[in-house]
Deep mutational scan, measured.
Amino acid sequence: DESNKPILLPNESQSFERSVQLLDQIPSYDTHKIAVLYVGEGQSNSELAILSNEHGSYRYTEFLTGLGRLIELKDCQPDKVYLGGLDVCGEDGQFTYCWHDDIMQAVFHIATLMPTKDVDKHRCDKKRHLGNDFVSIVYNDSGEDFKLGTIKGQFNFVHVIVTPLDYECNLVSLQCRKDMEGLVDTSVAKIVSDRNLPFVARQMALHANMASQVHHSRSNPTDIYPSKWIARLRHIKRLRQRICEEAAYSNPSLPLVHPPSHSKAPAQTPAEPTPGYEVGQRKRLISSVEDFTE
């Protein structure tokens, strides 16, 4: 099969070098950035008060330690540790928490760990991170309901609301924008112990962030949302095809390698009803078989 044979790379090609550099910018793992907010007593309706908090309760602090690993920003190499735009020179604080497994990295933009500057009256330095995160974990210690939209931002799609209760338990629920209701189930609340709260809140936030990324990708319907490693695979396959075309153009005697095509017509299947918005969006999480067989 010609399409699977190794090909020689061009010795000097600026377009090839640019493509390789672009490939280096696509990590081999999925990345997520999640905002974390603490809401104190009497702050449920005040964005400024929430963003001005420099610490929270003892249970909130224990919750943070379970979310991930504490890292010092100045020691991080952005090409190895995903920071979601946090500055490593102290502009966004000294520490944050991050978490990773074999296929993804997540960083938490924690408002109480970011510096509260006197010259920044409206807390814009914090909002440029927190307001651009799709998902926020809100530790609501106010005793009042927290409403979506209290923290203004164009991309605040989903809130994971943590409400501490007695007996070391917590109520965990989801809020989302109306255009996200087909992807996020907000109907079920959970009672979770303090011990298990970081794991549950983190998983709910990661799932909500993946759904938000799919939702946000609708602005470019021709580019369905893939995982990062599938995006790398697609980029490599496009690069291979372009090299083959350039080689055939410079030397017409060489065969032009095309991806294999299936001449056999697909079997006719009964027509199915058109899937609704929710089903269609969830299918976009699934990769096409052509990603692996071309």
Rank of each mutant, 00 (worst) to 15 (best):
S3K: 12
V39L: 02
T186D: 09
Q105E: 13
T150E: 03
A189M: 14
P252A: 10
P252L: 09
K33Y: 15
C244E: 13
T222C: 07
S13G: 10
V138R: 00
H235N: 12
P270D: 08
D102V: 05
E181F: 05
F95M: 05
A267H: 10
D87R: 15
E54H: 05
N170L: 01
G85H: 04
N4M: 07
E181A: 07
G84M: 06
Q21T: 10
H100N: 14
N196Q: 04
L48R: 08
S57H: 01
Y277R: 15
F146Q: 01
D87Q: 09
D133G: 13
H258V: 13
V172R: 00
E72H: 09
L9T: 14
K127T: 12
Q268A: 11
E294C: 13
D166L: 03
S288G: 12
S28A: 12
K127H: 08
S219N: 13
E2A: 06
R242L: 15
I243D: 04
Q203H: 06
A205S: 04
L70D: 10
A211M: 11
E294D: 12
F16Y: 10
C244H: 08
T150H: 03
Q154S: 15
Y29W: 10
V188M: 12
S142K: 01
E246D: 12
Q21S: 10
L73N: 14
Y277P: 14
V188Q: 07
L67I: 03
G143V: 01
V119I: 10
I137Y: 00
L23V: 07
N220T: 09
V214W: 15
G42P: 01
Q281L: 10
R234P: 15
G40F: 01
F63R: 00
S28W: 15
F134M: 07
D1G: 06
S142D: 02
P226S: 05
K178L: 07
L256C: 15
N220A: 08
I103E: 13
R195C: 11
S57F: 01
Q14P: 10
A247N: 12
N11L: 10
P266Q: 14
L64W: 01
K33C: 14
E62Y: 03
D101W: 00
E72Q: 12
Y58F: 09
Q77E: 06
S187E: 07
A271D: 11
S136P: 01
K152N: 14
F95D: 04
K5S: 15
Q241G: 08
L183P: 02
I26Y: 06
R202K: 05
E294I: 04
D30C: 05
T61M: 11
G143R: 07
T150M: 04
K228P: 05
R240T: 13
N53Y: 00
S219K: 10
K147A: 10
L22P: 07
W99E: 04
I7P: 07
V20I: 15
D120N: 14
Q77A: 13
S250D: 09
G66P: 00
V160S: 00
N45P: 02
S288W: 05
T186R: 06
E41S: 05
P273L: 11
E144I: 03
K74D: 10
I103L: 15
L64T: 03
R218K: 10
L206F: 07
Y97T: 04
R59N: 00
I137P: 00
A49Y: 02
L183H: 09
E54R: 04
Q213H: 10
A247Y: 09
N132Y: 07
I110W: 01
T163N: 05
I230L: 05
D145S: 07
G90H: 09
K152W: 09
R128P: 05
L183V: 10
V257T: 11
G84H: 13
L86R: 15
N170A: 07
G42F: 15
T274K: 08
V184S: 03
L86W: 14
L285W: 07
S136W: 14
S15A: 12
Q94R: 14
P226F: 04
C244R: 07
R123C: 15
S46V: 02
E2Q: 07
R238V: 12
A271K: 10
Q21H: 09
G66T: 01
Q154L: 14
G182C: 10
I103M: 15
L23P: 07
S57C: 03
G84F: 03
T186C: 11
L256I: 11
V172Y: 00
P115T: 07
V200F: 06
S253P: 07
S219I: 09
P78V: 15
F134H: 03
V214G: 02
S136Y: 04
Y29D: 04
Y139K: 00
P221N: 05
Y38P: 00
I243K: 05
M180T: 02
F146A: 01
I224G: 05
L165A: 02
Q105G: 04
A49M: 05
L22H: 12
E47F: 02
V39M: 02
T116N: 15
E272V: 12
E245K: 07
H258E: 15
C176I: 05
R59C: 00
L171K: 04
I7W: 07
L86S: 14
T96E: 09
Y277C: 11
I286H: 09
A111C: 05
Q241H: 11
L130G: 04
V138C: 02
E278H: 10
T222D: 13
Q203M: 14
F63L: 02
K228V: 07
L37N: 02
L254R: 13
R234S: 11
C89N: 13
H216A: 07
N132S: 15
F63V: 00
V200Q: 02
I103A: 05
S28F: 12
K228M: 04
G280M: 09
A248N: 08
I224T: 12
Y58G: 07
Y277T: 13
M180A: 04
L37Y: 14
H216E: 08
S52W: 02
R59W: 00
L73W: 15
S46T: 03
V214Q: 08
D166A: 04
T186K: 06
L23G: 07
F199W: 03
S19D: 15
K80Q: 03
L64R: 01
S19T: 13
E246Y: 05
N220L: 05
D75C: 05
S44I: 07
P266A: 08
A201I: 04
P226N: 06
T31K: 13
T293I: 03
I137Q: 00
Y139R: 00
D87E: 07
L148C: 15
H258C: 13
R238K: 14
V20Q: 07
N140Y: 00
Q281K: 07
M104N: 13
S219G: 08
D185Y: 03
P260W: 10
E144Q: 09
D166I: 01
T116G: 07
D145L: 04
D133F: 11
Q213D: 02
E246A: 05
D79G: 08
I34Y: 01
R128D: 10
V257L: 12
P259M: 13
D133S: 08
K264E: 15
F199G: 03
V36E: 00
G42K: 04
G93S: 13
D102F: 03
E294Q: 11
H159T: 11
C124I: 13
Q154N: 12
Q25I: 04
L37I: 09
F146D: 01
S217E: 08
A189I: 15
F95G: 05
I286W: 08
D223T: 10
K127M: 15
V119T: 13
